[in-house]
Design a binder for these strands. Sequence first.
DNA 1: CACCAGTGGGTAATCGATGTCACGCGCGTT
DNA 2: AACGCGCGTGACATCGATTACCCACTGGTG
Lengths: 331, 331
Amino acid sequence: MIMPRIKLSEVARLARTSTKTASRVINGDPRVSAATRERVQRAVTELHYRPDPLARSLRRGTDDTIAVVVDEVSDPFFTRVIGEIERMALDRDITVIVASTRRLAERERTVLDGLAHRRIAGLIVASVTDDHSYLRSAHYPIVFIDREAIGLEADAVLVDDRAGARMAVEHLLAHGHRRIAFVGDRLDIATVRNRLEGFQAAMSAAGITTPEEYVVHMEPQLTEGRHAVERLLALDEQPTAIFSANTRCSLLTLPTLHRTGRTDVAFVSFGDFAMADALTPGVSVVNHSPELIGRLAADRLLRRLAGEKLAAETITAPLEVLARGSGELAP
Amino acid sequence: MIMPRIKLSEVARLARTSTKTASRVINGDPRVSAATRERVQRAVTELHYRPDPLARSLRRGTDDTIAVVVDEVSDPFFTRVIGEIERMALDRDITVIVASTRRLAERERTVLDGLAHRRIAGLIVASVTDDHSYLRSAHYPIVFIDREAIGLEADAVLVDDRAGARMAVEHLLAHGHRRIAFVGDRLDIATVRNRLEGFQAAMSAAGITTPEEYVVHMEPQLTEGRHAVERLLALDEQPTAIFSANTRCSLLTLPTLHRTGRTDVAFVSFGDFAMADALTPGVSVVNHSPELIGRLAADRLLRRLAGEKLAAETITAPLEVLARGSGELAP
DNA sequence: CACCAGTGGGTAATCGATGTCACGCGCGTT
DNA sequence: AACGCGCGTGACATCGATTACCCACTGGTG
């Protein structure tokens, strides 16, 4: 299976021709006689020859590899996005390399810079920074996911964060809630910021002023998240409902609610997750399919790699509210 | 940030020396005079030179890239393993490429074969096949995770599947259960097979014969999993407890139990998952940390890459029963 | 009959970095 | 004074595949 590395010259020798002609056959150049082509092909299969992707990349200046850069590989949302991208890429013999920014702008720059020196064919990135103009000189197509490109014309596959948050809030309002809290993490990340804006817009539209303490930021620290939620539930004016800005936050908030027996608090999560429907009550979510987002992004990138000339486009993936119980609790 | 590709020869020219000497400086060869070294270093920083990893790999014959091959990138267990590996690798400027086998032996071969032609520095693999002798000629270190190497001396980071299954069964037995069912998927995969063996060994040891219908195999099809569980609960002699062989199966089984209101059935899962402790009742698990497994595997591989000579070793990650309620229900 | 176009195929340069090897210089030996 | 040695250095080959460019041969044409 792992051969003593065969080179093109050996194939050529066996086929009694030059490396150039062998190369032509392999790359489907038509200007080779049928007889020669035949000989080369036999030699290829006989020796189990496979071109060295490295040497090929060096010469051609491109590589059959795409990079996917996300916050964290193990984030339940990105995990599924990556899974779908990898599936589509592997079917086309394209290799996927992954890297995570850990939501650090500085690290994102390091990672992208390192990638620029590899000759990747394309990039799919969930960026945590807010200026991508320096990527303008990149010689490969880029598709942004989850967060839009700023200062750069590029494809993006997004969900309408504001609309989604609004949908969640309106859902809670419709079930009689007025004291609704927002749980999010890092506000310097566009996704969270936009969802907070949507939340606040929906609240104002309903004529409700949200007290400051109702907007909770939990850092990725597990314990801090727990404390933040506990503080929220210890307020004099307790919220009767919570909107969680993303899956990560939901995964931190819900165990606390369950542990403290506060499942009477209504809850809507932006982003679905495993077991959401098995909890008691089932967790209502604003659903956006990570697989769909991955597929749309990969499709866009692969089409560009296949040579299609496309104008930069922002694709918005659909959102829907899945009512499972927790979002329909009465205040 | 993305420079118009600077080559070593340009650095050399600016430093008024040869490419070879410039290369020496960059690779820390001591046999360069301080003055020359200085000139080259200035040229490097001035031009923002970074060696082309591709060309370097071609010449050196190795690449600072490790491959991780697992069943499915989005599997909740492997996701976390990958996250940890990626974290450790990136800290050392090593790139990670991922690929999934989708649990198909044939695909695993294709993927590994493709990898063999890239010049990866190392491989971490959760194999679904049962003969790895063909990897003997691989020129890079390999660490197996989750499933051991067969026909090949190599490092492996495993959990004791039989012992874990036994622990789960004994836990259920201790709480009075005798009618215990096994839920697993693909028996051709060693992990599942071993856990079934452990299950059966523990049952026999307790003098209990498990009826055939108590051993359920669900294919990764969601609907089939659901039906299998429903059939199990429709038996005349219903089991009072279920042991699930892995997270994937738990994620298929539990929603069915909850939807049909059969949370009176005791349940132990091999492998923890998000929200397990927030369900009602909390899900008892045999816990093995994916992060720890990832870390152990990556550490082993990175140490080999750093040149340490180590004998092939099988490392067994610890297991523990986390009692959260579902495994302590009375029959 | 000499010339031109078209087709199949070879030679050598190239991609960018690194290993091989030999060279020149200064210095200590005998 | 000739020799040898070590050190810093650079010209050149090399990794494996692709490509720019050139050549040989065939057949048709003026």
